[in-house]
C-alpha cells in the first residue's frame, strides 16, 4: 500500500522469455508475473489502472495511462487485452424458453453457446449497455439493444 502512488511514477514494463509481464519499478527492482488491473472496469476503464503482483497486491497505480511513454503504454494495453475477455454479443441466434436458458449467440469473438441461469444475470449499466453473465461466469456485453436485429431484440426482451 505504501509502495503505491497515484502520480505517474517511473517504471518499465516488458515481457520476458517465460511469457511473464515484468515490472521494473522506480528503484530498479524487478517484479515478475505482474498483471494490470482496471480499478473501474465498467465506469472508467481508461484510468486508474493498477499493476499488481501475483497475489493481487498493488505495486503501482497509473491514474492516467495517456501520460506514459508510448512503448510502455503499448505493452500495458497488450497486457490488459490479454486478460480482458468480454465478448460483445452481436446477434442472438436462439434462446430456449424458461430458466436456465440456453443461448446461442454470435459475438465479435465468434459464435458461442452458453447457459444463462436467470434474468438476474443480465445487468443494465448506467450507460445503457447490458452485461450478461453466463453460468460459468463468462461475461458478455450487449452494447446497444436498439442496434440489434429484430429477432435478437425480441429474444432478449423475453429476459428483460
Amino acid at each position: 500500500m505504501s509502495a503505491a502512488t497515484t502520480t505517474t511514477p517511473q517504471f518499465d514494463l516488458h515481457y520476458d522469455d517465460w511469457g511473464r509481464l515484468v515490472l521494473v519499478d522506480a528503484d530498479g527492482k524487478y517484479h515478475e508475473g505482474v498483471t494490470p488491473v482496471r480499478s473501474f472496469p465498467l465506469s472508467d476503464p481508461e484510468h486508474w489502472i493498477s499493476i499488481c503482483d501475483s497475489s493481487t497486491r498493488e505495486l503501482i497505480c497509473i491514474a492516467n495511462p495517456q501520460s506514459l511513454p508510448a512503448k510502455t503504454r503499448e505493452t500495458l494495453n497488450l497486457a490488459l487485452a490479454k486478460n480482458e475477455f468480454i465478448p460483445i454479443i452481436e446477434r442472438i441466434v436462439h434462446a430456449t424458453h424458461g430458466e436456465p436458458a440456453e443461448w446461442q449467440v454470435e459475438t465479435n469473438r465468434g459464435p458461442r453457446t452458453f447457459v444463462l441461469k436467470g434474468e438476474d444475470d443480465i445487468r443494465t449499466l448506467s450507460d445503457g449497455r447490458l452485461i450478461v453473465t453466463d453460468s460459468d461466469g463468462v461475461r458478455y456485453f450487449i452494447n446497444n439493444v436498439r442496434q440489434l436485429d429484430g429477432h435478437s431484440r425480441r429474444t432478449l426482451e423475453r429476459f428483460l
Binding site: 522469455d17 517465460w18 511469457g19 498483471t35 486478460n83 480482458e84 475477455f85 452458453f114 460459468d136 461466469g137 463468462v138 461475461r139
Partner: peptide
C-alpha cells in the same frame, strides 16, 4: 485464472513452449 479467463502454459527448461487460452467453461 483471471476471472472467467484462463491460461494453460507449457514451459520447457528455459522458456515457455506454448500456451492455450480457455474460459471458465
Amino acid at each position: 485464472l483471471h476471472g472467467a479467463l484462463a491460461q494453460l502454459e507449457l514451459f520447457g527448461t528455459n522458456s515457455r513452449l506454448t500456451h492455450w487460452r480457455l474460459t471458465a467453461h
